[in-house]
Simulated scan of single mutants.
Amino acid sequence: MAVSSSRFAIIALSLAYALYFGQLGVITPYLGVFLDGRGFTSVEIGELFAVITLARIIGPSLWAGVADRTGKILFILRLGSGLTVLSFIGVFWAYSFWYLTLVMGLMMMFWTAVLPQLEVLTLQTIEGDSKRYGRIRLWGSIGFIVLTVLVGQALDFFSTDAPIYASMLVLIGLFISSLTLTQPQNLKPKAAVAVRIMPFLRDKVALLFLLSNALLQLSFGAYYGFFALYMRDLGYSGMQTGLLIALGVTVEVGIFLVAQRLISRFGVWRLMVFCLLATGLRWLVLGTLADMFWLVFFSQFIHALSFGLNHSTSMHFIHHYFPTQIHGRIQAAYISLAFGLGGAVGNYAAGLMWQQGAGSMLTFSAAGACAAAGGLVLLLITPQQMDKRQ
């Protein structure tokens, strides 16, 4: 076996995934708690989340372009993770809104360099072995779950600054782990692809697919920005909040294992409509009945549909509906428009409506309406139109 696919290389990649997604398990649920502890209003929290999310529009394409043209995948990964650490240090002294926004925006811009390059390194190292990829990628979910629970518990004993101390340690660990990775020798710069994607994006089915996903991610603004704060205000402990978030990720991992069978049986259109409408119900439950723990508990199972199954179905649609040579750019458009633009608008709108918790019911109800609207948008096309090129 080549050095690049040795046991050490697999362990190093698994550790990098665990730390990368472990950082998401810290910053995504608990950034709002940290910002609230620093005295920021819900409007400012929403605005800051929006700025961070917008970096997902610019960053991935920028770094991917450099990586494709130079072939220096590992160097860009290390550079991104190192600059993320350096920029994140500023958070410890960032008490003004604009300074913290600048620091977090820069951090996220550098952060977007890491995962795409890590994915390329992994796939090249294991030579496309999907089973080994699944085992390596699983450590990302484990890292997310473990860090989410640990930081949730830390909030029960320490100040609201606990998430940024945890993030700093994880980011340093990720940079150190990147130094143990090796770049396979078969990675070379890619030639530019001449096929234009705009004619494909003007297609009615493609437009409605992107719009429905943008509405779904818009609906997530309330959850990503304010769920942990919401649970705290309702009297839930940090440990309970961490376990609830971890539950959502755990069932998400489970749905990935059966997603392909569900897609084969029910098709893209039916599953996407079902996922979007179920997500609308999830937000409605959170907005009106969150004081009942068992309802919040069971609503977290819908995360398997809200993200896991919907994302798997979306990837399947992109892979089968569009020509092979533009899959990468279509996926980038999907991430930028849905997760980037849709997520940013959702974060900003949630911040305007939240009103330090007084508008929680309105915010989650609006989120539910957006998710449901995403499902209804797909009624403008037929199941056969979404599946016709598979």
Results as ranks from 00 to 15, higher is better:
Pro184Gln: 04
Phe209Tyr: 15
Arg261Gln: 11
Tyr224Lys: 01
Met239Trp: 12
Phe175Gly: 08
Met239His: 02
Leu247Tyr: 06
Val249His: 08
Phe226His: 04
Leu262Cys: 04
Leu174Glu: 12
Arg202Gly: 08
Val151Asp: 06
Gln240Arg: 02
Met239Tyr: 06
Ile263Asn: 10
Tyr230Met: 02
Ile255Lys: 00
Pro163Asn: 12
Val193Arg: 15
Gln240Met: 11
Ala194Leu: 09
Leu207Gln: 12
Leu257Gln: 13
Ile172Leu: 15
Met231Asn: 08
Ala214His: 03
Arg196Asp: 01
Leu181Val: 00
Asp203Arg: 13
Leu169Met: 14
Ala259Gln: 02
Ile245Asp: 01
Lys204Asp: 05
Ser177Met: 09
Leu201Ala: 14
Leu208Phe: 15
Tyr165Asp: 03
Gly173Asp: 09
Ala214Lys: 01
Ala228Gly: 05
Gly173Cys: 11
Gly235Glu: 13
Asp233Lys: 09
Lys204Pro: 15
Phe209Trp: 13
Leu234Asp: 03
Val249Lys: 04
Asp203Ser: 14
Tyr230Gly: 01
Val195Gly: 01
Leu244Met: 11
Leu234Ser: 08
Gly235Arg: 01
Arg202Ile: 00
Gly254Glu: 08
Leu187Glu: 02
Phe157Gln: 06
Ile164Ser: 01
Gln183Arg: 11
Leu211His: 05
Phe226Val: 09
Leu210Phe: 15
Gln153Met: 12
Val249Asp: 03
Leu181Trp: 02
Leu211Thr: 12
Asp156Tyr: 01
Phe175Lys: 08
Pro184Leu: 07
Asp156Ile: 00
Leu174Arg: 07
Gly235Thr: 07
Thr180Ser: 13
Gln240Thr: 12
Ala206Lys: 09
Thr180Cys: 03
Gln217Met: 13
Gly242Pro: 13
Asp233Met: 09
Phe220Asn: 15
Val205Lys: 05
Glu252Lys: 08
Arg261Pro: 01
Leu262Gly: 05
Ile164Phe: 00
Gln260Tyr: 11
Val205Gln: 07
Val170Ala: 06
Gln240Val: 05
Phe266Cys: 06
Ser264Phe: 06
Leu215Phe: 15
Tyr230Lys: 07
Ala194Trp: 04
Gly235Val: 08
Met168Cys: 09
Ser159Pro: 05
Ala214Gln: 04
Leu171Trp: 06
Gly238Gln: 00
Arg261Thr: 02
Gly173Pro: 03
Lys204Leu: 07
Val195Ile: 10
Asp203Gln: 14
Leu215Glu: 05
Gln185Thr: 13
Gln185Val: 09
Phe209Thr: 13
Gly221Val: 12
Tyr236Cys: 06
Val151Asn: 09
Thr160Arg: 14
Ser237Met: 01
Ala154His: 00
Arg265Lys: 15
Leu216Arg: 06
Arg232Trp: 03
Leu215Val: 06
Val193Glu: 15
Tyr223Ser: 04
Tyr230Glu: 04
Leu243Phe: 04
Asp161Ile: 03
Ala206Tyr: 10
Ala191Glu: 13
Leu234Ala: 12
Asp203Tyr: 02
Ile245Thr: 09
Thr160Asp: 11
Leu215Asn: 04
Leu171Thr: 03
Leu187Ser: 01
Arg196Phe: 00
Ile255Tyr: 07
Phe209Gly: 13
Ser167Arg: 06
Val151Leu: 08
Leu234Cys: 07
Gln240His: 02
Thr160Gln: 13
Asn213Ser: 12
Met239Cys: 00
Ser159Thr: 15
Ala166Cys: 08
Arg196Asn: 13
Leu201Gly: 11
